[in-house]
Design a protein around this nucleic acid. Structure first.
Lengths: 221, 221
DNA sequence: TAGATTGTTAATCGATTAACAATC
DNA sequence: TAGATTGTTAATCGATTAACAATC
Protein backbone atom coordinates (compact mmCIF):
# COMPACT_ATOMS: atom_id res chain seq x y z
CA UNK A 1 0.00 0.00 0.00
CA UNK A 2 0.89 3.67 0.12
CA UNK A 3 3.78 3.88 2.46
CA UNK A 4 5.88 6.99 2.16
CA UNK A 5 8.48 6.64 -0.59
CA UNK A 6 11.95 6.54 0.97
CA UNK A 7 14.99 8.32 -0.44
CA UNK A 8 16.61 4.94 -0.88
CA UNK A 9 13.71 3.78 -3.02
CA UNK A 10 13.84 6.89 -5.21
CA UNK A 11 17.55 6.34 -5.71
CA UNK A 12 16.92 2.87 -7.10
CA UNK A 13 14.19 3.86 -9.54
CA UNK A 14 16.53 4.99 -12.32
CA UNK A 15 18.27 1.60 -12.23
CA UNK A 16 14.92 -0.21 -12.41
CA UNK A 17 14.00 1.95 -15.35
CA UNK A 18 17.20 1.10 -17.21
CA UNK A 19 16.66 -2.64 -16.85
CA UNK A 20 13.01 -2.34 -17.83
CA UNK A 21 13.90 -0.45 -21.00
CA UNK A 22 16.23 -3.26 -21.89
CA UNK A 23 13.62 -5.95 -21.20
CA UNK A 24 11.00 -4.05 -23.20
CA UNK A 25 13.47 -3.76 -26.05
CA UNK A 26 13.77 -7.53 -26.08
CA UNK A 27 9.96 -7.81 -26.06
CA UNK A 28 9.88 -9.52 -22.69
CA UNK A 29 6.25 -9.34 -21.56
CA UNK A 30 6.48 -10.05 -17.88
CA UNK A 31 9.16 -10.24 -15.23
CA UNK A 32 9.33 -11.59 -11.69
CA UNK A 33 10.77 -9.58 -8.82
CA UNK A 34 13.50 -12.20 -8.64
CA UNK A 35 14.51 -11.75 -12.25
CA UNK A 36 14.39 -7.97 -12.32
CA UNK A 37 16.14 -7.76 -8.95
CA UNK A 38 18.97 -9.88 -10.28
CA UNK A 39 19.38 -7.63 -13.32
CA UNK A 40 19.54 -4.56 -11.12
CA UNK A 41 21.56 -6.12 -8.33
CA UNK A 42 19.14 -5.71 -5.45
CA UNK A 43 17.23 -8.06 -3.18
CA UNK A 44 13.85 -9.20 -4.58
CA UNK A 45 12.04 -8.24 -1.39
CA UNK A 46 13.52 -4.77 -1.59
CA UNK A 47 12.31 -4.44 -5.14
CA UNK A 48 8.79 -5.56 -4.28
CA UNK A 49 8.72 -3.19 -1.32
CA UNK A 50 9.88 -0.32 -3.52
CA UNK A 51 7.18 -0.92 -6.10
CA UNK A 52 4.57 -1.45 -3.43
CA UNK A 53 5.45 1.87 -1.81
CA UNK A 54 4.74 3.55 -5.15
CA UNK A 55 1.40 1.81 -5.43
CA UNK A 56 2.63 -0.28 -8.35
CA UNK A 57 1.35 -3.83 -8.27
CA UNK A 58 2.15 -7.09 -9.99
CA UNK A 59 0.19 -10.31 -10.33
CA UNK A 60 0.70 -13.10 -7.81
CA UNK A 61 1.98 -16.22 -9.42
CA UNK A 62 2.91 -14.32 -12.57
CA UNK A 63 5.09 -11.29 -11.90
CA UNK A 64 5.05 -7.74 -13.21
CA UNK A 65 3.96 -6.64 -16.66
CA UNK A 66 7.05 -5.08 -18.21
CA UNK A 67 5.27 -2.41 -20.24
CA UNK A 68 3.05 -1.41 -17.36
CA UNK A 69 5.99 -1.25 -14.97
CA UNK A 70 8.03 0.75 -17.44
CA UNK A 71 5.17 3.16 -17.94
CA UNK A 72 4.49 3.62 -14.23
CA UNK A 73 8.10 4.25 -13.30
CA UNK A 74 8.49 6.61 -16.24
CA UNK A 75 5.55 8.61 -14.98
CA UNK A 76 6.84 8.62 -11.43
CA UNK A 77 10.24 9.84 -12.62
CA UNK A 78 8.70 12.29 -15.04
CA UNK A 79 10.97 11.13 -17.86
CA UNK A 80 8.45 12.01 -20.51
CA UNK A 81 8.34 15.63 -19.48
CA UNK A 82 10.70 18.47 -20.14
CA UNK A 83 12.06 20.69 -17.42
CA UNK A 84 13.64 23.91 -18.60
CA UNK A 85 16.97 24.51 -16.90
CA UNK A 86 18.99 27.62 -16.02
CA UNK A 87 22.72 27.11 -15.61
CA UNK A 88 24.47 29.65 -13.41
CA UNK A 89 28.20 29.97 -13.98
CA UNK A 90 29.74 29.78 -17.45
CA UNK A 91 33.22 28.71 -16.38
CA UNK A 92 34.74 25.39 -17.38
CA UNK A 93 32.04 23.40 -15.66
CA UNK A 94 29.13 25.54 -16.85
CA UNK A 95 30.41 25.41 -20.42
CA UNK A 96 30.88 21.67 -20.16
CA UNK A 97 27.31 21.26 -18.96
CA UNK A 98 25.98 23.50 -21.71
CA UNK A 99 27.78 21.43 -24.33
CA UNK A 100 27.04 18.10 -22.69
CA UNK A 101 24.06 16.48 -24.40
CA UNK A 102 23.22 14.37 -21.37
CA UNK A 103 21.00 16.98 -19.76
CA UNK A 104 18.83 17.81 -22.76
CA UNK A 105 18.48 14.17 -23.75
CA UNK A 106 17.17 13.38 -20.28
CA UNK A 107 14.47 16.01 -20.51
CA UNK A 108 16.45 18.84 -18.94
CA UNK A 109 17.13 21.27 -21.81
CA UNK A 110 19.31 24.20 -20.86
CA UNK A 111 17.44 27.36 -21.78
CA UNK A 112 19.68 30.03 -20.32
CA UNK A 113 23.21 30.52 -19.05
CA UNK A 114 24.38 33.17 -16.57
CA UNK A 115 27.71 34.56 -15.46
CA UNK A 116 28.91 37.73 -13.79
CA UNK A 117 32.20 37.91 -15.69
CA UNK A 118 31.83 40.82 -18.12
CA UNK A 119 34.11 39.06 -20.56
CA UNK A 120 31.76 36.09 -20.77
CA UNK A 121 28.47 37.99 -20.81
CA UNK A 122 27.24 38.31 -24.38
CA UNK A 123 29.38 35.47 -25.73
CA UNK A 124 27.69 32.43 -27.22
CA UNK A 125 28.11 28.98 -25.71
CA UNK A 126 26.35 25.96 -27.17
CA UNK A 127 23.99 28.29 -28.99
CA UNK A 128 23.09 30.31 -25.91
CA UNK A 129 24.05 33.91 -25.27
CA UNK A 130 25.48 34.23 -21.77
CA UNK A 131 23.26 36.53 -19.70
CA UNK A 132 24.48 38.76 -16.90
CA UNK A 133 23.94 37.35 -13.41
CA UNK A 134 22.27 40.61 -12.38
CA UNK A 135 19.34 39.68 -14.56
CA UNK A 136 18.94 36.20 -13.08
CA UNK A 137 15.73 36.78 -11.13
CA UNK A 138 14.10 38.68 -13.95
CA UNK A 139 14.96 36.15 -16.65
CA UNK A 140 14.36 32.97 -14.66
CA UNK A 141 11.02 34.18 -13.35
CA UNK A 142 10.08 35.50 -16.79
CA UNK A 143 10.79 32.21 -18.49
CA UNK A 144 9.06 30.23 -15.75
CA UNK A 145 12.15 28.08 -15.21
CA UNK A 146 11.94 25.75 -12.21
CA UNK A 147 15.25 23.86 -12.40
CA UNK A 148 18.58 25.51 -11.66
CA UNK A 149 22.13 24.24 -11.95
CA UNK A 150 24.77 25.94 -9.82
CA UNK A 151 28.19 25.79 -11.44
CA UNK A 152 29.66 28.86 -9.78
CA UNK A 153 32.40 29.19 -7.17
CA UNK A 154 31.62 27.90 -3.70
CA UNK A 155 31.51 31.47 -2.43
CA UNK A 156 28.71 32.50 -4.77
CA UNK A 157 26.64 29.33 -4.42
CA UNK A 158 24.38 30.27 -1.51
CA UNK A 159 23.55 33.67 -2.92
CA UNK A 160 22.78 32.17 -6.31
CA UNK A 161 20.59 29.56 -4.65
CA UNK A 162 18.67 32.29 -2.83
CA UNK A 163 18.05 34.15 -6.08
CA UNK A 164 17.00 31.00 -7.89
CA UNK A 165 14.54 30.10 -5.14
CA UNK A 166 13.15 33.63 -5.07
CA UNK A 167 12.59 33.37 -8.83
CA UNK A 168 10.52 30.22 -8.58
CA UNK A 169 13.11 27.46 -8.91
CA UNK A 170 12.20 24.37 -6.89
CA UNK A 171 14.88 21.91 -8.04
CA UNK A 172 18.59 22.61 -7.83
CA UNK A 173 21.56 20.61 -8.98
CA UNK A 174 24.52 21.93 -7.00
CA UNK A 175 28.04 21.31 -8.27
CA UNK A 176 29.77 23.16 -5.44
CA UNK A 177 31.15 21.49 -2.34
CA UNK A 178 29.03 23.34 0.20
CA UNK A 179 25.56 22.21 1.19
CA UNK A 180 22.93 24.85 0.44
CA UNK A 181 20.41 26.30 2.82
CA UNK A 182 17.03 26.30 1.07
CA UNK A 183 13.34 26.23 2.04
CA UNK A 184 11.66 22.86 2.54
CA UNK A 185 9.83 22.91 -0.77
CA UNK A 186 13.08 23.13 -2.71
CA UNK A 187 14.97 19.93 -3.55
CA UNK A 188 18.73 20.05 -3.89
CA UNK A 189 20.99 17.32 -5.26
CA UNK A 190 24.69 17.79 -4.86
CA UNK A 191 27.19 16.47 -7.36
CA UNK A 192 30.53 17.05 -5.77
CA UNK A 193 33.55 15.85 -7.70
CA UNK A 194 35.96 16.96 -5.00
CA UNK A 195 34.20 14.86 -2.39
CA UNK A 196 34.04 11.85 -4.70
CA UNK A 197 37.75 12.14 -5.34
CA UNK A 198 38.56 12.45 -1.66
CA UNK A 199 36.50 9.37 -0.89
CA UNK A 200 38.32 7.53 -3.67
CA UNK A 201 41.66 8.58 -2.28
CA UNK A 202 40.64 7.48 1.23
CA UNK A 203 40.27 3.92 0.02
CA UNK A 204 43.25 4.21 -2.31
CA UNK A 205 45.34 5.49 0.56
CA UNK A 206 44.20 2.82 2.93
CA UNK A 207 44.64 -0.06 0.52
CA UNK A 208 48.11 1.01 -0.59
CA UNK A 209 49.31 1.94 2.90
CA UNK A 210 52.25 -0.08 4.18
CA UNK A 211 50.82 -3.27 5.58
CA UNK A 212 51.85 -3.42 9.20
CA UNK A 213 49.19 -1.31 10.81
CA UNK A 214 46.13 -3.20 9.74
CA UNK A 215 43.83 -0.53 8.42
CA UNK A 216 43.61 3.04 9.57
CA UNK A 217 46.64 5.16 10.26
CA UNK A 218 46.22 6.16 13.86
CA UNK A 219 48.09 8.75 15.83
CA UNK A 220 49.55 6.79 18.71
CA UNK A 221 50.38 8.55 21.92
CA UNK B 1 38.42 2.26 19.61
CA UNK B 2 39.21 0.64 16.29
CA UNK B 3 35.84 -0.08 14.82
CA UNK B 4 35.72 -0.53 11.11
CA UNK B 5 35.29 2.78 9.29
CA UNK B 6 31.82 2.87 7.75
CA UNK B 7 31.03 4.21 4.29
CA UNK B 8 28.85 6.81 5.92
CA UNK B 9 31.78 8.03 8.01
CA UNK B 10 34.07 8.27 4.98
CA UNK B 11 31.42 10.28 3.18
CA UNK B 12 31.39 12.87 5.97
CA UNK B 13 35.15 13.31 6.19
CA UNK B 14 35.43 15.80 3.32
CA UNK B 15 32.87 18.03 5.02
CA UNK B 16 34.78 17.86 8.31
CA UNK B 17 37.93 18.77 6.45
CA UNK B 18 36.31 21.82 4.87
CA UNK B 19 35.14 23.20 8.21
CA UNK B 20 38.49 22.49 9.82
CA UNK B 21 40.34 24.35 7.09
CA UNK B 22 38.10 27.31 7.76
CA UNK B 23 38.66 27.16 11.53
CA UNK B 24 42.42 26.83 11.08
CA UNK B 25 42.34 29.83 8.77
CA UNK B 26 40.76 31.83 11.58
CA UNK B 27 43.45 30.56 13.96
CA UNK B 28 40.97 28.73 16.14
CA UNK B 29 43.06 26.41 18.31
CA UNK B 30 40.53 23.95 19.60
CA UNK B 31 36.98 22.93 18.83
CA UNK B 32 34.34 20.88 20.61
CA UNK B 33 32.37 18.15 18.87
CA UNK B 34 29.31 20.30 19.44
CA UNK B 35 30.78 23.30 17.66
CA UNK B 36 32.27 21.42 14.73
CA UNK B 37 29.16 19.32 14.35
CA UNK B 38 27.07 22.45 14.11
CA UNK B 39 29.30 23.87 11.39
CA UNK B 40 29.07 20.67 9.41
CA UNK B 41 25.42 19.99 10.13
CA UNK B 42 25.70 16.62 11.84
CA UNK B 43 24.95 15.30 15.31
CA UNK B 44 27.83 15.75 17.81
CA UNK B 45 27.69 12.09 18.82
CA UNK B 46 27.97 11.06 15.19
CA UNK B 47 31.02 13.26 14.80
CA UNK B 48 32.70 11.85 17.90
CA UNK B 49 31.93 8.33 16.77
CA UNK B 50 33.37 9.05 13.31
CA UNK B 51 36.62 10.40 14.74
CA UNK B 52 36.84 7.60 17.26
CA UNK B 53 36.49 5.01 14.50
CA UNK B 54 39.51 6.56 12.81
CA UNK B 55 41.51 6.42 16.02
CA UNK B 56 41.48 10.21 16.31
CA UNK B 57 41.08 11.44 19.87
CA UNK B 58 40.28 14.70 21.56
CA UNK B 59 40.72 15.83 25.15
CA UNK B 60 37.89 15.43 27.64
CA UNK B 61 36.73 18.73 29.00
CA UNK B 62 38.55 20.60 26.22
CA UNK B 63 37.67 19.35 22.76
CA UNK B 64 39.75 18.60 19.68
CA UNK B 65 42.93 20.36 18.63
CA UNK B 66 42.09 21.94 15.27
CA UNK B 67 45.55 21.57 13.72
CA UNK B 68 45.92 17.99 14.86
CA UNK B 69 42.44 17.10 13.61
CA UNK B 70 43.07 18.82 10.30
CA UNK B 71 46.33 16.96 9.91
CA UNK B 72 44.90 13.56 10.78
CA UNK B 73 41.92 13.86 8.46
CA UNK B 74 44.17 15.16 5.70
CA UNK B 75 46.36 12.10 6.09
CA UNK B 76 43.38 9.76 6.15
CA UNK B 77 41.99 11.36 2.98
CA UNK B 78 45.41 11.53 1.36
CA UNK B 79 44.88 15.15 0.36
CA UNK B 80 48.58 15.92 0.47
CA UNK B 81 49.37 13.30 -2.10
CA UNK B 82 49.04 13.33 -5.84
CA UNK B 83 47.30 10.59 -7.77
CA UNK B 84 47.98 10.55 -11.49
CA UNK B 85 44.78 10.13 -13.47
CA UNK B 86 43.93 8.65 -16.86
CA UNK B 87 40.73 9.92 -18.47
CA UNK B 88 39.14 7.56 -20.97
CA UNK B 89 36.80 9.22 -23.45
CA UNK B 90 37.52 12.62 -24.96
CA UNK B 91 33.95 13.55 -25.84
CA UNK B 92 32.17 16.51 -24.29
CA UNK B 93 32.47 15.14 -20.79
CA UNK B 94 36.09 14.01 -21.13
CA UNK B 95 37.08 17.37 -22.58
CA UNK B 96 35.24 19.15 -19.80
CA UNK B 97 37.07 17.11 -17.18
CA UNK B 98 40.42 17.72 -18.84
CA UNK B 99 39.79 21.46 -18.81
CA UNK B 100 38.22 21.51 -15.37
CA UNK B 101 40.81 22.57 -12.81
CA UNK B 102 38.96 20.90 -9.96
CA UNK B 103 40.66 17.54 -10.39
CA UNK B 104 44.26 18.73 -10.52
CA UNK B 105 43.75 21.16 -7.66
CA UNK B 106 42.49 18.30 -5.49
CA UNK B 107 45.57 16.22 -6.11
CA UNK B 108 44.26 14.32 -9.13
CA UNK B 109 46.23 15.67 -12.09
CA UNK B 110 45.16 14.27 -15.44
CA UNK B 111 48.21 12.79 -17.10
CA UNK B 112 46.70 11.14 -20.15
CA UNK B 113 43.55 11.17 -22.23
CA UNK B 114 42.26 8.35 -24.43
CA UNK B 115 39.69 7.98 -27.16
CA UNK B 116 39.02 5.53 -29.97
CA UNK B 117 37.69 8.16 -32.39
CA UNK B 118 40.39 8.54 -35.06
CA UNK B 119 39.41 12.17 -35.52
CA UNK B 120 40.19 12.93 -31.89
CA UNK B 121 43.36 10.86 -31.53
CA UNK B 122 46.38 13.10 -31.92
CA UNK B 123 44.52 16.32 -31.17
CA UNK B 124 45.48 18.39 -28.16
CA UNK B 125 43.06 19.01 -25.31
CA UNK B 126 44.10 21.01 -22.27
CA UNK B 127 47.72 20.47 -23.19
CA UNK B 128 47.39 16.71 -23.57
CA UNK B 129 47.63 14.81 -26.83
CA UNK B 130 44.75 12.36 -27.09
CA UNK B 131 46.07 8.79 -27.19
CA UNK B 132 44.43 5.92 -29.01
CA UNK B 133 42.38 3.64 -26.79
CA UNK B 134 44.21 0.64 -28.19
CA UNK B 135 47.27 1.76 -26.32
CA UNK B 136 45.46 2.14 -22.98
CA UNK B 137 46.98 -0.85 -21.18
CA UNK B 138 50.47 -0.12 -22.40
CA UNK B 139 50.41 3.58 -21.52
CA UNK B 140 48.58 3.32 -18.20
CA UNK B 141 50.78 0.49 -16.96
CA UNK B 142 53.90 2.24 -18.28
CA UNK B 143 53.09 5.47 -16.45
CA UNK B 144 52.13 3.63 -13.29
CA UNK B 145 48.74 5.33 -13.19
CA UNK B 146 46.35 4.00 -10.53
CA UNK B 147 43.30 6.24 -10.95
CA UNK B 148 41.03 6.06 -13.97
CA UNK B 149 38.09 8.18 -15.03
CA UNK B 150 35.54 6.62 -17.37
CA UNK B 151 33.84 9.21 -19.55
CA UNK B 152 32.95 6.92 -22.43
CA UNK B 153 29.59 5.68 -23.65
CA UNK B 154 27.74 3.25 -21.38
CA UNK B 155 28.42 0.47 -23.86
CA UNK B 156 32.19 0.84 -23.65
CA UNK B 157 32.38 1.34 -19.89
CA UNK B 158 32.80 -2.25 -18.70
CA UNK B 159 35.44 -3.08 -21.26
CA UNK B 160 37.35 0.09 -20.39
CA UNK B 161 37.12 -0.77 -16.71
CA UNK B 162 38.52 -4.23 -17.39
CA UNK B 163 41.45 -2.77 -19.26
CA UNK B 164 42.12 -0.17 -16.57
CA UNK B 165 42.07 -2.80 -13.85
CA UNK B 166 44.36 -5.08 -15.86
CA UNK B 167 46.77 -2.16 -16.19
CA UNK B 168 47.03 -1.57 -12.46
CA UNK B 169 44.28 0.95 -11.80
CA UNK B 170 42.68 0.51 -8.36
CA UNK B 171 40.42 3.58 -8.19
CA UNK B 172 37.80 4.40 -10.79
CA UNK B 173 35.51 7.37 -11.15
CA UNK B 174 32.68 6.23 -13.41
CA UNK B 175 30.55 8.81 -15.20
CA UNK B 176 28.36 6.29 -17.00
CA UNK B 177 25.00 5.13 -15.72
CA UNK B 178 25.83 1.45 -15.41
CA UNK B 179 27.43 -0.07 -12.33
CA UNK B 180 30.79 -1.69 -13.13
CA UNK B 181 31.85 -5.20 -12.32
CA UNK B 182 35.35 -5.01 -10.82
CA UNK B 183 37.52 -7.09 -8.45
CA UNK B 184 37.24 -6.46 -4.72
CA UNK B 185 40.48 -4.51 -4.47
CA UNK B 186 39.22 -1.88 -6.93
CA UNK B 187 37.12 1.01 -5.65
CA UNK B 188 34.55 2.58 -7.94
CA UNK B 189 32.65 5.79 -7.36
CA UNK B 190 29.84 6.59 -9.72
CA UNK B 191 28.91 10.14 -10.66
CA UNK B 192 25.75 9.81 -12.64
CA UNK B 193 24.15 13.02 -13.82
CA UNK B 194 21.26 11.21 -15.45
CA UNK B 195 20.32 9.53 -12.19
CA UNK B 196 20.65 12.77 -10.24
CA UNK B 197 18.37 14.51 -12.71
CA UNK B 198 15.81 11.73 -12.58
CA UNK B 199 15.77 11.86 -8.81
CA UNK B 200 15.33 15.64 -8.99
CA UNK B 201 12.44 15.26 -11.38
CA UNK B 202 10.81 12.65 -9.15
CA UNK B 203 10.46 15.19 -6.38
CA UNK B 204 9.68 17.99 -8.82
CA UNK B 205 7.00 15.85 -10.38
CA UNK B 206 5.50 14.85 -7.09
CA UNK B 207 5.47 18.33 -5.59
CA UNK B 208 3.89 19.95 -8.62
CA UNK B 209 1.55 17.08 -9.48
CA UNK B 210 -1.53 17.59 -7.31
CA UNK B 211 -1.76 21.37 -7.36
CA UNK B 212 -3.17 21.49 -10.87
CA UNK B 213 -0.53 22.77 -13.22
CA UNK B 214 0.84 25.74 -11.31
CA UNK B 215 3.88 26.39 -13.43
CA UNK B 216 4.61 22.90 -14.64
CA UNK B 217 6.92 23.42 -17.60
CA UNK B 218 6.03 21.59 -20.73
CA UNK B 219 8.19 21.59 -23.80
CA UNK B 220 6.68 24.64 -25.44
CA UNK B 221 8.74 27.80 -25.71
C1' DT C 1 -5.82 -28.09 -8.75
C1' DA C 2 -0.45 -27.38 -8.17
C1' DG C 3 3.08 -24.29 -8.77
C1' DA C 4 4.66 -19.74 -8.77
C1' DT C 5 5.07 -15.31 -7.11
C1' DT C 6 3.27 -11.31 -4.93
C1' DG C 7 2.48 -8.17 -0.94
C1' DT C 8 3.36 -7.68 3.76
C1' DT C 9 4.60 -9.08 8.49
C1' DA C 10 8.17 -9.89 11.44
C1' DA C 11 13.15 -10.40 12.13
C1' DT C 12 17.46 -8.49 11.35
C1' DC C 13 20.94 -5.38 10.46
C1' DG C 14 23.47 -1.13 10.56
C1' DA C 15 23.67 3.52 11.47
C1' DT C 16 22.29 7.43 14.36
C1' DT C 17 21.74 9.53 18.58
C1' DA C 18 20.69 10.16 23.60
C1' DA C 19 22.75 9.61 27.78
C1' DC C 20 26.32 9.36 31.01
C1' DA C 21 30.54 7.65 33.42
C1' DA C 22 35.25 8.86 32.72
C1' DT C 23 38.36 12.38 33.05
C1' DC C 24 40.77 16.55 31.51
C1' DT D 1 37.96 21.27 42.86
C1' DA D 2 33.90 22.46 39.40
C1' DG D 3 32.69 22.65 34.84
C1' DA D 4 33.18 20.94 30.36
C1' DT D 5 33.49 17.59 27.04
C1' DT D 6 35.03 13.23 25.47
C1' DG D 7 34.46 8.23 24.35
C1' DT D 8 31.31 4.63 24.55
C1' DT D 9 27.19 2.07 26.04
C1' DA D 10 22.58 1.44 25.35
C1' DA D 11 18.35 2.97 23.05
C1' DT D 12 16.32 4.20 18.89
C1' DC D 13 15.40 4.62 14.26
C1' DG D 14 15.05 3.32 9.51
C1' DA D 15 16.06 0.35 5.94
C1' DT D 16 16.87 -4.35 4.34
C1' DT D 17 15.62 -8.93 4.00
C1' DA D 18 13.72 -13.55 5.29
C1' DA D 19 9.62 -15.83 5.50
C1' DC D 20 5.06 -16.94 4.42
C1' DA D 21 -0.02 -16.44 3.88
C1' DA D 22 -2.64 -14.79 0.08
C1' DT D 23 -3.85 -15.68 -4.40
C1' DC D 24 -3.19 -15.68 -9.42
Amino acid sequence: MDQPVSEATVGRLPAYLRSLVELAGRDVASVSSGHLAKLVGVNPATLRRDLSSLGITGTRGVGYDVKYLLFEISVVLGVNQEWAVAVVGAGNLGRALANYQGLASRGFPIKVLFDIDEELVGTTIAGLTVQHGDRLSEVVAGMGITVGVIATSVEAAQSVADQLVASGVTSILNFTADPLDVPDHVVVRRVDLATELQILSFYHQRDTAVSGGAGVPLGED
